[in-house]
Design a protein around this nucleic acid. Structure first.
Lengths: 334, 334
DNA sequence: GCCCACGATTGGAGCGCTCCAACGAGCGTA
DNA sequence: TACGCTCGTTGGAGCGCTCCAATCGTGGGC
């Protein structure tokens, strides 16, 4: 019933050339006559031939694909990262394969097993790296968006979370806010942002008040943390959340308490994720420049695939404040 | 510098057995003695051996992976679908590979090329199928979440959008709403939901008013459509949106006009996506049961891989209304 | 004590490609 | 005319597995 897919030999036969010539055409060799190239391409089209990735990978030394490990499809920050990566890799003929860490946890013991079996040419880890992430020596790896370097020898590309937090705080203090709370969550990035928050507050002579959610950085966590903050410190005029999703929860908590945003309460997020720019949130946030992070990560990867020895260097991009409608001067200044 | 990864021969040598025995152990053959199995597993561990997927795929007839084509990572409806698929496939030793249609459009001419090159054992199309999606005869394919069967021979698993729309409308009319508007978008599902809306309205003796966004189904589309609706028909007391994202835009439009939800305006979405259950939206919506769709799709795929001839049958799951905080009786009934 | 059957183990062939060394044909040059 | 070159093209080897037929070893039945 299912005739096996055509092979390179089938193409060669119908084009009247050797299998080697077909291979040359497919890989874009310049030393093929126009006539033969056309004949081969026609045969490919006619037969609906698709080269077998498996055979190509086995025969060649390389798969021309980069594995990207993300945390969870629901955290949309990876979308822009992927776009940047794509852009940087496509010109080098490299493709991307994405794996979701939480989803795959059920099926694979070791989080990178799938990609290692696939013999990817490089790896982008867009997750909080764990100790279980042992990587074969010599495999180019870059950790993107996270700073804790648990992967030995990996390059690191991220935004400067501490600086981003300071940008957010400057914005709020410039507006005149003095009683500012921070909603923090789990993970390294959240910790750095919390540190940046505390530093800024102390530098401004203000008392830093940091409230955790329930361990993670979801909307629910943001809501829970904001409820706690607003109930225990009702004099608060501004909230800085560890990310946009938590900020969304804060908006909900504010609404429930009859606080209007931004008139009664200013809210700042982090990441500039797609929800931040919606009409409903119009969230002032810090752009962590994930597309650029992807581009730099691609660059690093390509360099290391090209043979340059990786040194485990870290690149920190400067985040940028994005002012939207969720921040304003406090009602009663002073 | 980079010593090539160990092969099955390396494992065989250090375990003191033949490569065939290693292969048997790896694939869980019952007819291997405990002693040898232990020796092989120890060697695998010691060498950090990972079987080459490429070689396995080439040698075996099958890759044991199912390709899933999704539209756009930002449309989160696929997350639950993936979970259901995973669940249904894992027990059969099948893994999942995900490709994003919009992202890959740049790198591949044909949307399925990557998966066909990979020689996936089956395909789940979780996108509006296009004519360009030619699939080799005999490859098990199921279209998930969409009803327009442009893929010949494919099974279809989706929710009954028309029924879902009717459920939403019943809910609103039961609450006493009479002046109800519908925000519609592009795509087959949106069309079916719009039809269900119109049917329900006509059946109830009401005038159906349907407003398109800007061609798609984003938050922006929902906002634009809602603005148009509320400005041209301010007597509207309830809005039914083609999906949750559009409903989010509607909430924004309502807020801008000083309409409180649900007191002044009820809003119903569709999909029960993760944003619907947030504290900020508390959106009444229709659960399209995407996890179950995934499970049924997995079942179909497994059956067809197992040899049963596909007939292009369609399975329609019954959607369920999820009532949250965005709907209530209209202010002035009648 | 011998033979057979069956479970455990093995080597060989081959999957569809890429890479490489080698080939033939035409050209310019001596 | 003979030679070396280059360009375009070719066949063969081999990548690391799976599958299969063949082999080995051992215990039970007679």
């Amino acid at each position: 019933m299912n005739s096996r897919p055509p092979t390179i030999y089938d193409v060669a036969r119908t084009a009247g050339v050797s299998k080697s010539l077909v291979s040359l055409v497919l890989r874009g060799s310049p030393s093929v006559s126009e006539a033969r190239r056309a004949a081969v391409l026609a045969a490919v089209e006619q037969l609906g031939y698709r080269p077998s990735q498996a055979a190509a990978a086995l025969a060649g030394a390389t798969t021309r694909t980069i594995g990207v490990v993300i945390d969870d499809y629901r955290n949309l920050w990876f979308v822009e990262l992927l776009r940047g990566l794509q852009e940087g890799l496509a010109s080098h003929g490299l493709r991307i394969a994405v794996a979701d860490h939480t989803l795959n946890a059920h099926v694979e013991a070791h989080p990178l097993d799938g990609f290692l079996s696939m013999r990817v040419d490089g790896l982008v880890i867009a997750t909080e790296p764990t100790g279980a992430m042992r990587v074969p020596e010599g495999l180019p790896v870059v950790v993107a968006g996270h700073r804790e370097g648990l992967v030995p020898g990996a390059d690191v590309v991220a935004n400067d979370d501490r600086l981003g937090a300071r940008l957010a705080m400057e914005h709020l203090t410039d507006l005149g806010h003095r009683r500012i709370g921070h909603l923090t969550g789990g993970g390294g990035a959240a910790r750095l942002r919390a540190e940046g928050f505390a530093e800024s507050m102390v530098a401004a002579g203000l008392e830093p008040r940091t409230v955790p959610g329930r361990g993670a950085t979801t909307e629910e966590d943001g809501y829970a943390a904001a409820v706690r903050l607003l109930d225990t410190a009702p004099e608060t005029t501004a909230v800085f959340a560890a990310n946009d999703t938590m900020a969304m929860g804060a908006l909900a908590a504010a609404g429930e308490r009859g606080l209007r945003v931004p008139q009664d309460l200013s809210v700042v997020g982090y990441d500039d994720s797609p929800i931040a720019s919606t009409h409903l949130l119009r969230l002032t946030t810090v752009d962590s420049r994930n597309a650029e992070i992807g581009e730099v990560a691609a660059e690093r990867l390509v360099a290391r695939i090209g043979g340059s020895r990786g040194t485990g260097a870290a690149v920190l991009l400067e985040p940028e404040l994005v002012v939207r409608g969720s921040t304003a001067a406090p009602r009663s200044t002073g």
